[in-house]
Amino acid sequence: MLKILVIDRCHFTRTGIEALLNHSGTFNASFLVSGMNNLLLAKEHILQWKPHLVIADLYSFLSDPRASTPIAPFFMSCNTIPLILLQSGEREHIPAYDRQYTVHSVLSKRTALNELSDIIQDALRIRATLDTQKSVTPLLTPQEEKVLSLWMDGMGNKAIAAALGIHSKTAYTYKRNIRMKLHLGNRFSPFLSLPENKN
């Protein structure tokens, strides 16, 4: 499961990209999409969650008179994570940061969805190459990743337990740990958009 962080003050952009990734049928992978509208919190989220890709529209943050403080740390937190910048306004993208930090692509928000999909896939291929070179402990254990995958398919505790050969209370504990590690508020988190079956 690939983790993608979408940073934008526009709710519709965040939910639209999540829908493109998980419901368009364009991608062969499954995604855990986290959306944020606060650049300072995004920096901390990137450092802890370690997404495979960050997609951000920084235009509204640049319009903020206090924007000079959070933008540089944001770029530094991305480090080796592929970053796709979206442009929503008249202002050009951030040329000073482009030279200093690595940006995979800069796109207009008017870019066609198939072009955006191709660029996302290219960025994820680059990240996959980087991931094979490092030996960092992942945020979720392999068993938690299996539970999360089944959970996102809409399976309940009993079905997850039967599929993995564990007790249903153990499945519940795994789900609780996943919510805590991924900073998901509750079982009805927007990142788990499918309804959960009771079985």
Rank of each mutant, 00 (worst) to 15 (best):
S34M: 13
S68T: 07
I120A: 04
I126S: 11
P73H: 03
K175R: 15
H104A: 11
N197H: 13
A67D: 07
A29I: 05
N38K: 09
L182F: 07
L20E: 02
H93P: 15
K169F: 08
N79Q: 07
T69W: 03
V33E: 08
F27Y: 15
E144H: 01
G25Y: 05
Y174G: 00
L47Y: 00
I71Q: 04
N38S: 15
M152C: 10
G89K: 11
E92R: 12
R176H: 09
G25N: 05
D153R: 10
L5C: 03
I120N: 03
I84H: 05
L130K: 11
S135V: 09
T80G: 00
A162E: 12
S60Y: 07
L116C: 05
L85H: 03
L150H: 15
F74K: 05
C10A: 11
S135K: 14
L21R: 05
P195C: 01
L86H: 08
P65T: 07
A162F: 02
H167S: 08
I94Q: 13
G35R: 01
R91Q: 03
T13D: 15
L113Q: 13
N177H: 06
E196V: 10
L83E: 06
N199K: 12
L32N: 10
N177M: 07
S77C: 05
M76K: 10
W151N: 06
H93N: 13
H93E: 13
T102Y: 11
M76P: 00
R110N: 12
R176K: 13
A96K: 12
I160A: 02
E115S: 04
A56I: 05
L184E: 11
T129A: 14
D64W: 00
A56P: 10
L107H: 02
W151S: 06
A161S: 02
Q48V: 07
H23R: 14
E44T: 11
L21N: 04
H45P: 00
M152F: 05
V6E: 02
H45N: 12
Y59L: 00
I126Y: 14
I166H: 01
P95N: 13
P51E: 04
D64R: 04
P190R: 08
